[in-house]
Design a protein around this nucleic acid. Structure first.
Lengths: 222, 222
DNA sequence: TAGATTGTTAATCGATTAACAATC
DNA sequence: TAGATTGTTAATCGATTAACAATC
């Protein structure tokens, strides 16, 4: 590894991984930067540059071995580190993540779920125990947790995050649509802001509509 | 508006909007680029550059009026256009979006939900009717829909998207973790790839862990 | 060997930052 | 008016693309 790798590169790595897995599943054993680029809409140059930030994974004249490249990228992304996670806030978003998201496949081991709902406390969801959110501090004193999936209601996001940080959690996967600002520089926050995503789609829809209107006007000649 | 605005700029606009709403709610009436930058971690220059892609929204020596800037950005993002949406696939992710996500606040009007589950068909969720997914083509022939929220199981993502495109839907908010490749250039796809998000967080967690290990080694002097 | 494709260096392009005249 | 802050032009920085020697 050569110095700090830019965020742009980091965010392309999971896309490479996803495509490589797909190709591996469909039986492909080797792939060139040109072919991978075609599949993902990236230039071959960019792909070779990206990989070369981390090492030499290819073979001249041959390309990349799909399986070994997939493994290399998994290592880079820390998939093999099996970080321990808890999920805080078992509302509908929380539940849907537990049911549908393959934490294990991304190298994350979901240890426990916390909520205030007495109907849920004591049960298991997908084999993961649901505990009382009031016992969270106690739990964190006894267990080493690498990352918290934050799926509490927006109104409780700031206070929940603060409490978790005070208890030593310093990575957050944040679904609350609230901006979590880390007070310490070593706290990591990854936001999944649904509304930001939808609004940028909305922008492009509006832009497209305006362009079509303009084109039509030109076609009509006014 | 001056030429095509870069995707980087577009994706910052919802963040401005979110912060401006928050400030407006807390009673602030004017804000400078410096102050807005401090709140979001952007430079004042960048903020002024971003806004100037769309027009002149500020006043020299004063700054920006919070309310009018918020309205301008809403217009830019198309929030006032009230696009019509359907949600396809009412599993747990779909349900949680219907229950928790404020479509109306983002200028999206959710018209109908489609699923195969006979227990759901005929009911309403949050006032939105659930119809039989088998009647989707018929529905689309009769209703003009701007965007489909794609929340079907991953295995059905490709075929569902194809069918919807064939029926004239040409914008997708895709939650399926499947890459939807638009066959026509005028189809817009906005992906919410949970695993990409989590894997980049995982990378930064791994990087931080490695740095700390290195620092410790240096401190110990070996 | 000839052909293919990497890894890397150099060139280009675009995005961010700095500077400042305009002006409220 | 003096002070503040915009909008915009120019300078810098960083990311992407192109080119090509290395080599399988």
């Amino acid at each position: 590894m050569k110095g700090k790798v830019s965020d742009n590169v980091i965010r392309r790595m999971p896309k490479y991984l996803r495509e490589l897995k797909r190709q591996e599943d469909s039986g492909l054993t080797r792939i060139s930067s040109t072919e991978l680029g075609r599949l993902l809409g990236f230039s071959p140059s960019q792909i070779r540059q990206d990989f070369s930030s981390f090492g030499e994974f290819g073979v001249q004249g041959y390309g990349y071995n799909v399986q070994s490249l997939r493994e290399q990228i998994e290592n880079i992304l820390g998939v093999n580190r099996s970080y321990k996670a808890i999920l805080v806030g078992c509302g509908s978003i929380g539940k849907s993540l537990i049911h549908n998201f393959c934490f294990e496949e991304q190298g994350i081991s979901l240890q426990a779920v916390f909520d205030l709902d007495t109907d849920l406390i004591g049960t298991k969801i997908k084999g993961v125990p649901v505990y009382d959110a009031l016992d969270l501090q106690e739990y964190l004193a006894e267990h080493s947790i690498d990352v918290a999936v934050l799926t509490v209601p927006q109104s409780k996001a700031k206070s929940a995050a603060k409490m978790l940080m005070d208890c030593g959690v310093h990575a957050f996967w944040n679904f609350t649509n609230e901006e979590i600002v880390p007070p310490y520089s070593d706290v990591l926050v990854e936001n999944v802001h649904f509304s930001d995503s939808l609004l940028s789609l909305s922008y492009y829809m509006a832009e497209r509509a305006d362009n079509q209107k303009r084109t039509k006007r030109i076609a009509v000649g006014s």
